[in-house]
Design a binder for these strands. Structure first.
Lengths: 124, 124, 124, 124
DNA sequence: GTGGTCTAGACCACA
DNA sequence: GTGGTCTAGACCACA
């Protein structure tokens, strides 16, 4: 369920976090659903269990998942998680677009990109 | 001419690179124009000359500037730099937007962000 | 595995680059093989880790090796590296010879040098 | 008579030295022939007179030229200059070729390069 | 352990 | 003055 890019600059534990969050945001992971075990995911991905631990710990710290000793890790029950993640993503996008204005990007270009994006989507 | 964010996790030398590129892209820095010296920029920004050197070295390796020991560093002569940078930025944006679709971002939301962005711009 | 010439005016980090490339070109270093760590090589060569880092960083920028923070540096997977390096070297030689023609170097002299070179080789 | 490459990594004063030597080696500059004045060459090349001075000083130190205060600089009378330069160049070539053997360059490839070089020459 | 960033500061060649 | 190399050493995140 997780696809790692070992050579990427993005740390592995971050990649795990991002993908778990994306799956929560899009509904692929639902409330109280159990996540793969630390050891099993580590084996699946061919990485160190500590790395998975680190990802889960951060997800738990931020309230997206909860862990029960001896049972495993589960998606948190907070209704708003998907919405919250959605909103955070929008903020991220806004910031990223704002930072690219100094490069001379025009409104028309951005609108064209957005249109193209969803045209591709529809045809898929 | 360069504004650093010391708290950001983006390395300082990368921030310098990005801002120099932005200034080339938007025409603020022109062909063959001399850049601030390694030492003088370091003093201005309150950082170590090596850090500026690292930024300049990478900009030179990528062909955006050229350095002549004993004379200084200058914006490269490639006519296309601004256009190329502009296009690269658009590709970056496209990729970044595509990667946020799994979060359930809608077309309307993106269009709204773009509109808002340029409304702010105009009023400035 | 690396032999430095401390008195040469060729920078140390360049010497490292050249020798790593030569070892890739001749097959001594193979795909995905791990390179010595930045620190261990620095100690072996009696130089500063930063100098090794500089060499590795440039090798990575040029696609010959890849580094994963926390794991190490490895020879890149590009099949063609050896051939490409080989061809580049030939181009270099051709250019260097062409530039020495103005000195009145004759074909016979060059042929003699080449013959001598491989006669020595064989006897080794 | 001198063609500079301002952006080259080779220092300007070295470029001057190399080109003067090449011209002595190939007979373009003859014994006791007067070299361009320091100032006039500096103006021609658009560089600092000190840089030309440095080149001439090194040429004089190595015995290739001599200077007479108030008159100018002249090609030295040593008969052997051209031969000596010729021999030095051959040594350089030998060394450079030797250093490229680790890249897996074969005798056949070198012979082919030499042949090609003089075939082009002839046709010119 | 690994690589990556950064400082402080020396020293060099070049213009 | 300029850029370029290098040392010594700290500190960080990651595996």
């Amino acid at each position: 369920m997780i696809a790692l890019n070992q050579t990427s600059r993005t740390p592995i534990y971050q990649q795990i976090i991002q993908q778990v969050l994306a799956q929560i945001a899009c509904g692929l992971l639902r409330q109280n659903q159990q996540l793969p075990g630390v050891r099993s995911m580590a084996i699946d991905l061919g990485i160190n269990p500590n790395t998975v631990m680190k990802a889960y710990a951060e997800l738990e710290r931020d309230g997206y998942i909860y862990s029960i000793a001896g049972k495993g890790s589960f998606v948190a029950e907070t209704e708003q998680s998907p919405n919250l993640l959605h909103r955070k993503k929008l903020d991220e996008i806004k910031e990223s677009l704002a930072s690219s204005l100094p490069y001379g990007v025009t409104k028309e270009e951005l609108l064209a990109i957005v249109e193209a994006l969803y045209r591709e989507e529809e045809s898929v």
